[in-house]
Design a protein around this nucleic acid. Sequence first.
DNA 1: GTCATATGGTTTGTATCTTAATAATTAAGC
DNA 2: GCTTAATTATTAAGATACAAACCATATGAC
Lengths: 191, 191
Amino acid sequence: MSQTSQVRLDKRKYYSRDQIIRHAQKYPTFHWPTTELLLNLVYAYDLIATYIARILNRYHLSLSAFNLLIILARSEGKGLPLHEIGEALLVSRANVTGLVDCLERRGLVERVVHTEDRRVRIVRITKSGEELLESILPGYHGEVRELVNELSDEEKAQLSRLLLKLQDSILHTLEKKSRKREDGFMIGNGG
Amino acid sequence: MSQTSQVRLDKRKYYSRDQIIRHAQKYPTFHWPTTELLLNLVYAYDLIATYIARILNRYHLSLSAFNLLIILARSEGKGLPLHEIGEALLVSRANVTGLVDCLERRGLVERVVHTEDRRVRIVRITKSGEELLESILPGYHGEVRELVNELSDEEKAQLSRLLLKLQDSILHTLEKKSRKREDGFMIGNGG
DNA sequence: GTCATATGGTTTGTATCTTAATAATTAAGC
DNA sequence: GCTTAATTATTAAGATACAAACCATATGAC
């Protein structure tokens, strides 16, 4: 099992540099470092996301539901309006409604009508939701930390810096594009 | 619009370092560089994935469907069995069946029965599928390259190296775990 | 004040993906 | 050779996500 698990877990064998370049070189805009970066980003993300989803599955929480609870817990009792939750979680408003419905039925969060703007619903985490989080987080932090333990803290920081620069590059490009076509192209909740 | 797009596109304001640390410091296993890395990885991935999905939407292709076509095109006419496609795309075998069904109805791929092992179906890209790819790829490569143009080639390579190291760290941890509980814990297609 | 417009939230319909169960075929034990 | 186990693909049911259409409320123009 220990030999085969190596083979089964690592799917990167399907992406050989030579094969990719051979197929793509007829396109003048093709650029290997960019493609390589994309592949590695997607693959790293998928490994981590799949793993964390499995941890959370024990508690019957999706990744988004877990992040929602964490964001509410961080707000220190103040809660957040639904549309801000959507932005923070990078999901649509419609999806937030569903997420909150689900967590509200389980008693983990509650909706409160905003006193000044009656369109707005504030979502707050309940005592029960906080207790659930506190039962998950110690193990969660430990497992995630173990997952990345072959990188030194300096390497983690370096990786974070480069990922941040990548984000900025993307955001700037999107801004430029949304300035050009003034119809307001937007990612996420494209209102 | 140009000022507001900055605000609307960039959702990172919802994750303040101080707020995260204040909430998490009661957990001894919490580790800021790890959490920061995770946030940046998820955020960078989401930006790119959302953007590419919008490009592909013009052609009525999902990200997986697009990757499936590319993998088949790279195989140089030989095609691939369904279960290998699932591994390469990091999705379940059931999902591959559905993807291929959809692309087959549109005439972009075809199923061929394997002559030696009659359980196996080989999927090949058709002429029509190749033509579709060739209409997408020039623009696709150009747009993606523009998206990451604030990183030098050296920075892209550095980022790739670190992401690769991150992948290895995760894979090694998963291997260790699957060795411990010998029931064969596995990500992806957990057979 | 009134009408037009924008914003917050929900509902509805649809797409994508996963797990579990199933059928067909192959491989392995004896 | 026959039985058991493993593998490939499919089907079915359910989770999670998005876009578009829809109300309720708020804001702005006049």
